[in-house]
Design a protein around this nucleic acid. Structure first.
Lengths: 198, 198, 198, 198
DNA sequence: GATGAATGAGCTTTCATTCAT
DNA sequence: AATGAATGAAAGCTCATTCAT
């Protein structure tokens, strides 16, 4: 994503607009004209930047995965933290996003995870979110290495982590939780830690 | 669902066909003619049983939620089991479904959780899956009462449980897991138990 | 319309129900099931009495025309009345119908006059309302004969009479008139009389 | 109706085609594909100009009302004419239209007056034909002011005028009249004048 | 690059009518 | 006579995508 070039900048603005709309209204309920309108450009012109709606959706998930991955990476780099503290930080970052800039997480949950038929080809088998998954892998490997986490199948831990956080974000989005999402951080971090610790 | 009447039987057969197709291809990629074709009936006739595609989708989630709820209920009624054993049973039931009759769980994950705009009205705020949620609530309350589970916010426990299982089912559906889903039962039950225990 | 036979009675009840619905919602916005529902019978059964929706509509106009014609006939038979008085009576009858049992007049205006494609075959060229037209003809001929009305082309008089009354009924139906329809009787009878008198 | 712009021109061409078809075959018997076919364009494209069939029908009545209103206005502006002469002119204009370009008048009679459910919202209560009605109002007020017409309820006069002309146009359309429509001009103008004069 | 009119395929839904029961 | 499930044809409308300008 050479956001420096003019073309790169425009692509990113389209990605942002489409991300907002897709996450809010769903992939199929968002039309290309909708996206164009939000940007004040013509529908046809979007095709000068992305060859199809599907490809646009794929680019969005890559973009989103990169940004979320970066956030986890920042935590992974803080080597002075205990694993429990890292877990808390990750939950915190995730929940803050879910409440303050919910588009990315909603996109994950409601567009990427559901409309599998859209994310084929280059995006098969979660390749397009590899950046994000890798950072979770690193977090987990670190925890295992320093003896704080049990050495188990990675996906077993990954499913717990991401399923749990996603589930809570969903419940929050549905206004079902009795308290603000952020107030759950401590107990959820506690639960995750106790599930995974040695 | 008076499946005894002729009309009830037909309704159920439509529900089953639609469930299979929706869970496989998504709500918007499945057309009413698709469903009709699978049943060998005309598209128009489906409207003699369900007034709209949306309503059909809502009836399906009710149907599914009832069946899944029953499965959990059966476990809840086995009072001789420890909470850890119950957790294992629930995971087992869930994973068996996910591999053997994946439609229901896939429907939950890919249709119900994602296409929120479809589940409005009568189905707002997860009302249509209340049957299922209630059973999980009972499981949790029992565990707390007998002292095996920590008394925490229900949704905190619910999100863990369902997010985790859903996450694993998803990874399995994407053929990402390195082992068969069932082989994860023990370690996942272990993780959940340690996350929630006192 | 042998209303005495069982079949005749049922036919009439269908006609009445259909008349009410067609005049209220229009021919194309009224469905056969709508009519059946209003009668508490099945849609299919209606076809045991009328071979098609179009034919039903045609039978209705004949039925209506007969009844309206009878009303005019009653006035024609009152030989003691002056033509001006007869005009007043006709206007009165018409407006009373338009306010108290508006179905027939609305049917005339909004179904019969507009959906010409429905009234073909047997009903071409207003044959089906001949009964009514004939009575107006008689009224006019009488008026001419007794020297009160100018002898002009019948349709010139007929158009005035019926167009005028229909127009007023329409305006009334649209709630556009500033006063109740009945309050117009005198001035309208006056206008008609002065238009047609010798 | 900015007919100058390209889009305006196209809109007008759609209006004209739809007007012709609606007036000939009725609103419900005319399909969007019918209209498109007549224009050699695709059905979908019509929706780039009018958001729905109903709205299209409403635009047509506005368009028609404006044109008919203009014709009356021209007569109103001829201050040298007596009221009787004006009436004759109006009848003449109306009948000429009815025979030479019958779409507009047929549209009035068979689409606008009958399919009330289509002309809701912006078009409620004859708002969309206000332009035309206003000119008739002016004609009537002028006639009253100069002492030639009796001062009565406007709708009483309006109903006479328009009901009469509409009725004759209808009879003509049904090929029921014994003579060409234009041949009735004099006697009808006479009738109207004598109905309304002081 | 940018526009937006145009297309065409496809969708949900409706409904008169038929027909087995 | 009566039912109502079933059909099939068609309608209105949407939208990703193309392309002339």
């Amino acid at each position: 994503m050479k956001a420096e070039t003019k073309k790169g900048k425009k692509k990113e603005s389209i990605i942002k607009a489409a991300l907002a709309l897709f996450s809010l209204n769903g992939f199929y309920k968002t039309t290309i004209p909708d996206i164009a309108r939000r940007l004040g450009m013509s529908a046809g012109n979007i095709y000068n930047y992305f060859p199809s709606k599907d490809i646009l959706a794929q680019e969005i998930i890559k973009y989103t995965s990169e940004i979320l991955g970066h956030e986890i990476q920042k935590i992974n780099l803080q080597t002075d933290l205990t694993t429990h503290q890292k877990i808390k930080k990750i939950v915190e970052v995730y929940f803050n996003m879910a409440t303050q800039k919910p588009e990315m997480i909603e996109y994950f949950l409601r567009v990427y995870l559901s409309n599998r038929e859209v994310f084929t080809g280059e995006c098969d088998k979660m390749i397009c979110v590899a950046g994000f998954i890798t950072e979770i892998m690193i977090f987990f490997a670190d925890g295992v290495e320093c003896g704080e986490l049990r050495d188990q199948d990675f996906f077993s831990a990954f499913g717990l982590f991401m399923g749990y956080l996603g589930g809570m974000a969903f419940l929050n989005g549905e206004s079902i939780l009795s308290r603000p999402l952020e107030s759950y951080i401590d107990e959820i971090a506690y639960n995750i830690y106790h599930a995974l610790k040695t």
